[in-house]
Design a protein around this nucleic acid. Structure first.
Lengths: 342, 342
DNA sequence: CTGCGTGCAGAAAGCGGTTTCTCAAAGGGT
DNA sequence: ACCCTTTGAGAAACCGCTTTCTGCACGCAG
């Protein structure tokens, strides 16, 4: 193998007739070096096409300029948008991004956690699903900066930065909207109940109902899986029963699309016979037919903010943890109102 | 900052009463170490919660166990699926994945290329869009393994591994299908013509037409941008003209969805009045209404294969470059045939 | 003219592993 | 019983960069 080894700082130093220390100083711009030597070093570096070795720099400086992002699935459009936000903010701050999809599988998560520890990344972001406090504290103890996006540990008191949507309010927004339209038989297709996000949205739904002095029929609350198939199955169950709902709140858009598919196949017209609202506002929510009314989360922004928080923590690990709660927004489209989207 | 420094190999060595070299040997499983010492070392390592430092290991061993993936946009579902394939295959081979979205912007690409060189990754995969041969050869020269996914350099002779879909055949499949349905006025909404993929699909379209002794009307070939908006605009142009097409081949699904939106707004029925076929078979193609007939590419598989090729090259950099060309597949749905999808 | 502060640059000590080299001890053959 | 080979394990060099420490030269004040 013709590994023409790339130039090192020693090569540059020799060519410029200075010491490696001086080359390092010039390249890092920190210390005062005479203009003349600086010039010589820069020329030598260019001539040799020098690029500092990443591992050596990391080892010596104890930072990697790399952030990790662990999420359930990069192919899931919701998380992909968050990831893009993280990536952009990370790039702006001079970091690159290591991404791992865990499928929510503790084993895969363990695998990544193990491979990221020990100085591989300066900080790590967990997106989606739930996380046990013990694991998290292990990270904190190891001195790795940690942040959460759209995810919370069950124990509320773990001191960690987090960026979240107000899921309780989001759930309430959805149900209020359906109630405003005059519906009384509301179904909720929830996410997995072990996921905090799903529970919160359900709490909000109950709250909104209570505000109006009504309560949600437990028989119309079905636990789904946050996937298209789960929405489809849930709808099938709901409409095989004697007294089906007139409105459905699916706790994310993918399930809403599954519900929509079932309703179409069953010949049930939306929104005329059944109203439907989703959650997330993924890109395809606007493209489905009928277009999906939904509760929008600022996904890209959440990613950006989470990365920024993490970068700031890297700069000052002592500052108090911050928790950013963003407000969700009702986006009216065709599955709840008969008029076309403006 | 309470950086309770994590244990090093020296700490483990001291605790086990052996030399650091022995610890290294035990942990890497290579050399023969007496069972007794091995036992002592493992216990010490566990007791200290030892994890080898990544940077140190990389510096010393000259490998990073990291792969880079540069793509236009991780939030684009087409590339996200490829990325997931890459990630899974990489993980299986013991590598983690660094991802960078370039937006096809040469500047961003330069930025990433610069930050990935110099031993940050063992190999790098470029997905999508075009790549100049000079840049690529720069990488090859530096001894970084390189692979391409769904992307080709314009110069056909650059010796590099690549995984591609047969885009010419895909374009031909699409047009053959439309011709088989009896259409004669075919429009093509292409991707940007600077992109090889787009040009190839158009070449295939022309070939398929020629096979039947017809030729595509140049006025019905519109250059788009591979985005939803581009499909919408193209459709608007096509149908503002005196003699609109009866069938449209959009060179990717996002544009097809844009076309679909225009047709719906214009009250043109699909497939009754106009047939439509896309390309890629992104997840949402099946969920649109009417569901999109399209030319499927094995995206996830392409990612997997590309990563596998790269890993194999890492093991043997001398083997001849391989070019894997996967066959696209026609997926019948509702936008070309009146019957429902089975 | 001497002493001291200041600025620039080199020497050298890490950072935390891997790996070669060396050596001691054990094992085997005659 | 002796010599040579093999095996296990430590010493030390090295990977390439950062950073502290040291020293030299110069300028200025006493």
């Amino acid at each position: 193998m013709i590994t023409l080894a790339s130039a090192t700082i020693y090569d540059v130093a020799r060519r410029a007739g200075v010491s490696p220390a001086t080359v390092s100083r010039v390249l890092n711009g920190n210390h005062r070096v005479s203009p003349e030597l600086r010039q010589r070093v820069l020329e030598a570096a260019r001539a040799l096409n020098y690029a500092p070795n990443y591992s050596a720099r990391s080892l010596s400086s104890q930072r990697t300029a790399t952030l990790g992002l662990l999420l359930p699935d990069i192919a899931n459009p919701f998380f992909a948008e968050i990831a893009r936000g993280v990536e952009d903010a990370a790039a702006e701050a001079g970091y690159t991004l290591l991404i791992g999809s865990t499928d929510g599988d503790p084993l895969r998560e363990q695998h990544y956690v193990a491979s990221l520890q020990a100085g591989r990344v300066d900080g790590i972001l967990f997106a989606g699903a739930n996380l046990g406090a013990p694991l998290l504290e292990g990270w904190l103890v190891r001195g790795v900066a940690v942040g959460l996006v759209d995810r919370l540990v069950d124990e509320d008191d773990v001191p960690v930065d987090a960026v979240l949507t107000d899921n309780v309010e989001g759930g309430a927004l959805a149900v209020r909207h359906l109630l405003n339209l005059g519906h009384t038989r509301l179904a909720v297709v929830t996410g997995p109940q072990r996921v905090r996000t799903a529970r919160d949205r359900l709490v909000g739904a109950h709250q909104a109902a209570a505000e109006r002095g009504v309560s949600l029929d437990p028989d119309l609350i079905i636990e789904g899986n946050f996937k298209e198939s789960g929405g489809y199955q849930a709808a099938r169950i709901l409409f095989s029963r004697p007294n089906p709902p007139t409105a459905i709140f699916a706790q994310n858009d993918m399930m809403a699309l599954g519900v929509l598919r079932y309703l179409e196949e069953a010949g049930i017209r939306v929104p005329d016979e059944v109203a439907l609202i989703g959650f997330d506002d993924i890109a395809f929510a606007a493209l489905s037919r009928p277009a999906l009314t939904t509760i929008a989360q600022p996904k890209y922004e959440m990613g950006r903010l989470a990365a920024q928080l993490l970068v700031e923590r890297l700069a000052d690990s002592q500052q108090a943890p911050r928790r950013l709660v963003l407000q969700p927004r009702l986006v009216l489209r065709q599955t709840t109102v008969v008029h076309r989207e403006a």
